[in-house]
């Protein structure tokens, strides 16, 4: 009973929703409507699952006076203060987010918003540091990724096309440097000639390319986003969609039951 009933519930709910897509007529459309309205109510409760363990974990820390317990106390206290303030202000004005609620006007806008916004803003520092540390042209694929990212970053900001010219030439020089190192390291004369030809070709291409991108950088960025980028994203998502359908089917048919643990 403890296992069969949940499996049956998810089977019925999932199947009815899928059937109602293909048969949008009575009784299925009505059933779908009812199930959706139930789901809207019940799904709200999933947001509070797990919060008990967060509170218990911090409570335990306080009780045992373990290291950093004052911060555990801060967690509990701010939970209580937020909850009480929200309820009092919400009941008094009709909603927590009423325009005249002190909870919205002070707590939400001046405590919660800066906290949440700054938490995410510090990521910019980490990504800058990562770009410097880890964003290396180690292989042809990595170089391609690097070049695309740079074009996009410059293509979406003002003055990007002016900055692109020196950036492009520095990139050409860097590649030339690597190639020259290869020429020095190799002993075969024909490989050397090949490398030298490659260098000349690169410079020959770089001149008109710079000129073209200077005038059309924004359009080039649009093209990358609209065509090759889009095609790859679609390919990846089509794969994910097939995978998603398979997992959903496993859940409905009761093969995948990890949610019951």
């Amino acid at each position: 009973m403890k296992r069969e009933i949940p499996l049956l519930i998810s089977f019925i709910a999932g199947t009815l929703i899928v059937i109602s897509l293909f048969v949008p007529h009575p009784p299925f459309n009505k059933m779908e409507e009812t199930l959706n309205s139930w789901y809207i109510i019940v799904s709200g409760f999933t947001f509070i699952l797990g919060i008990d363990s967060l509170l218990l974990y911090n409570w335990d820390k306080i009780r045992r006076k373990s290291k950093d317990w004052p911060f555990a106390l801060t967690v509990i206290l701010s939970f209580v203060v937020t909850l009480v303030w929200g309820i009092v202000s919400g009941v008094r004005t009709g909603h927590i987010f009423s325009t005249n609620s002190t909870f919205r006007n002070y707590f939400y806008l001046y405590i919660y918003v800066p906290l949440q916004a700054t938490m995410f803003a510090i990521l910019s520092f980490f990504i800058a540091s990562a770009a410097y540390r880890a964003f290396r042209a180690r292989s042809l694929n990595a170089t391609l990724l690097l070049i695309t990212a740079s074009i996009i970053m410059l293509g979406r900001v003002p003055l990007g096309n002016a900055v692109l010219i020196p950036v492009l030439w520095i990139a050409v020089l860097l590649i030339a440097w690597v190639v020259l190192l290869e020429i020095k390291a190799t002993t075969s004369a024909s490989t050397r000639v090949g490398y030298i030809l490659m260098l000349i070709l690169m410079v020959v291409i770089a001149v008109p390319l710079t000129k073209f991108l200077y005038g059309n950088l924004s359009a080039a960025t649009d093209w990358i986003m609209d065509i090759p980028q889009m095609a790859a994203k679609r390919g990846i998502m089509l794969g994910l969609a097939l995978g998603g359908i398979a997992v959903s089917l496993r859940i409905i048919l009761g093969i995948e039951r990890s949610y019951m643990s």
Binding site: A131, Y132, V157, V163, L181
Partner: peptide, 20 residues
């Protein structure tokens, strides 16, 4: 935004010069 992008690209170039 533009100036920060230029800076990050400069960081990428610096990092790569060091790498090579």
């Amino acid at each position: 935004q533009a100036f920060v992008h230029f800076l990050i690209i400069a960081f990428i170039i610096l990092g790569n010069i060091g790498y090579i």
